[in-house]
Simulated assay, not measured.
Amino acid sequence: MTTNALSELLSQRDWLLTDGATGTTLFNMGLVSGDAPELWNVEHPDRIRALYQGPVDAGSDLFLTNSFGGTASRLKLHNAQDRVGELNRAAAELGREIADASGRKVVVAGSMGPTGEIMEPMGPLSYDSAVEMFHEQAEALKDGGADVLWVETISAPDEYKAAARAAELAEMPWCGTMSFDTAGRTMMGFTSADLAKMVETLPNPPLAYGANCGVGASDLLRTVLGFQASGSERPIIAKGNAGIPKYVDGHIHYDGTPDLMADYAVLARDSGATIIGGCCGTTTEHLVRMREALETRPRGETPTLDKITQALGGFSSPSDGTDGEGPARRERKGRRRKG
């Protein structure tokens, strides 16, 4: 594959800062829960320009387009399944406009979130249908000027593979993250070790892979350490939530301060991540401090789990899923015999 903007940056730098939370930012701009953010690409383009401008001004090297729910299956919930091309193209075009005006190399990453349907055999979505939906979205993001496709928040391995195939059909470089939000595993039971192994078996492997969202920043870094432990040499992505979600005055609020996310960014780098950003709750204020910390704090040794929890808070589960202690395991009353 020919060189692209992300490959070039990865060859020049030992870390890149990506963006923060699309949803959090849009809700702060007035998006109502249940509405399709992608419709804003044509209804409120200035708000989407502002969404993209925030991370660029904060020093991000890469930002995601407002197209997370841009597949036909997700847009069907808003009777917009026939507008996949229009909405994704607009998302990328607005991103291209902001990146090109920045005066430096900024990568426009075409966000592709899960289809929202369950893959066969547990659900109705076939692999071929998933490939078709992702491919339609990928071509529109490509037409709009995205530098790379950015598959995120995936929980099923077959859906990840379908997105990889779609990127191949669109002849686009891609990155892909899964969300490890169920005791260190994805909702479908996949572990960090499983993903590290799977990406190397794909006919069209990602430029970088990793984790996004999940529970808190501590859990995400434990997952990053799992990727690192697998011996992976492919660039790793860490896009953790800004602290832990709490329900305050009828809204979900993330308690991670800019200082906490600065600590998280440095710990992510020291844990082996190359592309570092934030997910839910992460604002431009967080990103500014994250950039500053990455630029000014020296690289340290790989952090221990204790160091991570001291800096960022405790884990949501005792296991990261890679030790065979699956998420369903519970302490039983009475002691079990060993051996």
Rank of each mutant, 00 (worst) to 15 (best):
Met1His: 08
Thr22Val: 09
Thr25Pro: 05
Leu31Cys: 08
Leu39Met: 04
Glu43Trp: 00
Asp46Gly: 01
Val56Tyr: 00
Asp57Cys: 05
Ser60Asp: 02
Asp61Thr: 02
Gly69Met: 01
His78Leu: 08
Ala80Val: 15
Gln81Ser: 13
Glu93Tyr: 03
Glu97Asn: 02
Glu97Gln: 11
Met112Tyr: 01
Ile118Tyr: 06
Pro124Gln: 08
Ser129Tyr: 07
Ser129Met: 14
Ala130Tyr: 06
Gln137Thr: 13
Leu141Gln: 00
Lys142Tyr: 05
Ala146Thr: 14
Val151Gly: 05
Ala163Phe: 06
Ala164Gln: 07
Arg165Asp: 15
Arg165Ile: 08
Ala167Tyr: 04
Met172Thr: 04
Gly176Leu: 13
Gly176Arg: 07
Thr177Tyr: 02
Met178Asn: 10
Thr182Asn: 08
Thr182Ile: 09
Ser192Ala: 15
Glu200Val: 15
Ser218Leu: 04
Leu220Glu: 06
Val224Asp: 00
Gly231Ala: 13
Arg234Ile: 15
Pro235Gly: 12
Asp249Trp: 04
Asp255Phe: 10
Gly256Gln: 07
Met261Cys: 05
Asp270His: 08
Gly272Ile: 15
Ile275Gln: 06
Thr284Lys: 04
Met290Asn: 12
Arg291Ser: 09
Arg291Lys: 07
Glu295Pro: 07
Glu301Trp: 07
Ala311Gly: 10
Asp320Gly: 05
Glu325Gln: 10
Arg332Gln: 11
